[in-house]
Design a protein around this nucleic acid. Structure first.
Lengths: 148, 148
DNA sequence: ATTTACTCTATCGGACAAGTAGAGTATATA
DNA sequence: TATATACTCTACTTGTCCGATAGAGTAAAT
């Protein structure tokens, strides 16, 4: 399950990637646009900043903007930052491997083997999807509508 | 994250699939073999029985056995039974779709789009892996060792 | 009749997610 | 320099759910 934090983070980042103006966006505006509790979003954006994904400016005219190009920000990093490893079980994680206590012989563990497949598939998707490519996908998946 | 319940369930089912003797296995034996708290396993096996995956026999010589052939029991069903839908967000679920409150326009939601990919990949793996095929995979992935 | 083993309900502690509150700090602008 | 603006940070609350345990009850074999 994706946490609200991760979900909100991705939504906010997509919004920031969209408004390509170099002007930073305020927390309050972002919160209103994406229907996120403002104080909660505050926490999330702070986290993103502390992980080098956002830059901030204080004071009047301040706010947040992306620290890198949208094509260089991958969902995998965001999800891991808020929700931890992608693998459904710690013993199947690549980035945060932890053996499990109950497990006679890991090499013969069916759960681990199946979950490793799930992890690999998930990682392939999330580490291969940047804000930029996700935006493109959304555009492409939306059927073109005649201008009204 | 896979819950302990789902994990224990898969391990227990694999053990039951392995000991192909038609004799039922007792909770206590299964618990010992797989390092699972017995009373906890009890709950899990009961759940599996109530979902038609196991059969039970009471009294002396009783215990649990698979209700179907191992090739007809898929991980997807087990995981969903204990952990709910596979999709990381409810709005990306196929079997238990629920729209999310915060979402101006679902058709344009990048989170949903990306998570639908994750769900599809996960479902393809888990709904395509039976106890029997998982067992084969384990056998194949274990490097053949000279008999000692 | 008695032992064995599953059946079911209730309960508990602890962890963690989601959200809130409020004091503090840096910056732009008048 | 004064002041409003807007980010920074810590702490706390509240509720939910997971993992696990306890114990009384029921069915079946011998």
């Amino acid at each position: 399950m994706l946490s609200r934090k991760a979900k909100y983070a991705i939504k906010a980042l997509l919004a920031l990637a969209d408004c390509e103006g170099d002007e930073p966006m305020r927390i309050a505006d972002l919160a209103r646009a994406e229907q996120i509790p403002p104080k909660f979003l505050e926490l999330i954006l702070l986290g993103l900043k502390n992980n080098g994904i956002l830059q901030s400016r204080k004071g009047k005219g301040g706010g947040y903007r992306l620290a890198r190009d949208p094509s260089q920000i991958y969902l995998g990093q965001i999800v891991r930052m808020f929700d931890g490893p992608l693998a459904p079980v710690p013993c199947a994680s690549q980035t945060a491997y932890v053996p499990c206590a109950d497990c006679r012989d890991e090499a013969v563990c069916g759960v681990r083997l199946a979950m490793k497949e799930v992890r690999d598939a998930t990682a392939k998707i999330l580490d291969g999807t940047s804000l930029a490519s996700l935006r493109q996908k959304v555009d492409r998946s939306t059927p073109p509508v005649a201008a009204s």
